[in-house]
């Protein structure tokens, strides 16, 4: 499913070069439930972005189902992201001008076989926010906003979910609900999960955990 080979990504910080991702080689098979842990600045988020084709590597290869992401054109990469990937971020990522339902429907704008309101409403129901469909993000709590973002990530039925601290600011109950939902999607639809987290308890619930330190990765 996801094949990463000899991946490097450096950043210039003043006169210094920071190795955000340093020679990472990794394989994530279809239906896997994987976590990546590490301290802040260890390169987890950058690696996740490289996997999602959101940023280009300095060297190395990222393949999704055998397709080298960086050999694809920009439009093809965008189509692949739209079709095969769902992103969940650690920050508030809802568009404040849109209602909850419209936010969930956003990725369908760029899809060929468009999903509609009924699909979005079903997902909102699954994350426990069916009654908030017409609300605006500002009317929701942080946890509720996160759940809307999760519903949005699933609207196009992606094969891969790339989640960056998905439970970062959730209370324990909501965190358990979200993880339960992830597990459900993983089991029922064989959705592949790569979750970046500080949360070792969360990592412990995944099937495999990697640790990143100074841009390098190792299986825990």
């Amino acid at each position: 499913m996801i094949e990463i080979n000899g991946l490097n990504k450096n950043y210039q910080a003043g006169s210094q070069i920071l190795k955000a991702v340093d020679d990472v080689t990794l394989g994530v098979e279809a239906g896997a439930f994987v976590s990546i842990v590490g301290h802040s600045g260890s390169g987890k988020t950058t690696l996740l972005s490289l996997m999602g084709g959101l940023t280009s590597p300095d060297s190395g290869v990222v393949s999704i189902d055998g397709q080298d992401l960086w050999r694809l054109g920009h439009d093809q990469r965008a189509e692949l992201r739209n079709r095969a990937m769902g992103f969940i971020y650690q920050f508030a990522s809802l568009l404040p001008t849109l209602t909850v339902l419209e936010n969930v429907l956003l990725p369908t704008m760029y899809a060929k076989g468009k999903k509609g309101s009924a699909d979005a409403a079903k997902l909102l129901d699954e994350v426990g926010l069916a009654d908030k469909a017409k609300s605006f993000p500002a009317e929701l709590s942080g946890g509720q906003q996160r759940r809307v973002a999760i519903a949005r990530a699933f609207i196009n039925e992606p094969k891969i979910i790339l989640a960056d601290e998905p439970t970062g600011d959730l209370d324990e109950d909501t965190e358990a609900e979200v993880l339960g939902f992830f597990r459900h999607m993983n089991r029922e639809y064989a959705t592949t999960f790569v979750i970046v987290t500080h949360n070792t308890a969360l990592a412990a619930t995944t099937n495999r955990t990697y640790r990143m330190t100074g841009g390098r990765i190792a299986l825990v």
Binding site: D75, R81, F87, Y89, P107
Partner: peptide, 16 residues
Amino acid sequence: QREMGLLQAMGAKRRN
């Protein structure tokens, strides 16, 4: 910028 980046992550092409 973040909003535009998010839209791109969701599959928006440059022309979108």
